[in-house]
């Protein structure tokens, strides 16, 4: 594949993947890895997992950022921008269309039924992803205690979450977690 067509191929591939990434972009990460590492050899496995770790720990749109790093590796800044846009463009169009539909049918008799079925499942999944994250982050009893303390504090007070994030980062930085 010639140098000029690499960024095009990557962007086209990401456009397709972002359109089918049901359940969030992480579900198609294995496919991205296969495409850029195995099929095309644009980067090493180590590059790819480093991009993941860094994107996860920087605040902001993680997966869009991660695809930015991937595009950057292939074609510098223009590649980074093209890859990022391919990651959020198609899903944003879909969110917009779906919400317009949902809002147009507000008050329709089927909507409370669908809502009452939908929302509890969503909430269960939110709490689940919190505990899945906790399992990855809590490498020892001190970190686990931190997670539990934060959850309790947030439920019982109106404290700004920024303070607990700062506290977590500081305790971690001093090697206490």
């Amino acid at each position: 594949m010639s140098a000029a067509s690499a960024p095009l191929a990557l962007t086209a591939h990401l456009l397709v993947l972002s359109s089918i990434s049901f359940g969030g972009f992480p579900t198609v990460l294995p496919d991205v890895r296969h495409f850029v590492v195995t099929t095309h050899g644009w980067m090493t496995d180590q590059d790819f997992s480093q991009f993941f770790a860094i994107a996860q720990s920087i605040p902001g749109p993680n997966m869009i950022l991660m695809m930015g790093f991937v595009g950057w590796k292939v074609w510098g800044i223009p590649g980074a921008i093209a890859s990022s846009m391919a990651t959020f463009g198609p899903p944003c169009a879909m969110y917009f269309a779906a919400y317009r539909l949902w809002y147009r049918f507000r008050g329709a008799p089927w909507q409370p039924t669908v809502r009452n079925g939908l929302v509890p499942v969503t909430i269960g999944l939110v709490i689940a992803s919190g505990t899945v994250m906790a399992r990855a982050a809590d490498t020892g009893p001190a970190a686990a205690a931190m997670t539990v303390a934060v959850a309790t504090l947030m439920l019982s007070t109106r404290l700004n979450p920024l303070w607990v994030l700062l506290a977590g980062g500081a305790l971690g930085g001093f090697g206490l977690l």
Binding site: M133, A134, A136, M146, T147, V150, L153, G168, G172
Partner: peptide, 8 residues
């Protein structure tokens, strides 16, 4: 440390 707090 940040991720432990973020999970909570």
């Amino acid at each position: 440390g940040l991720s432990a707090a973020a999970a909570g």
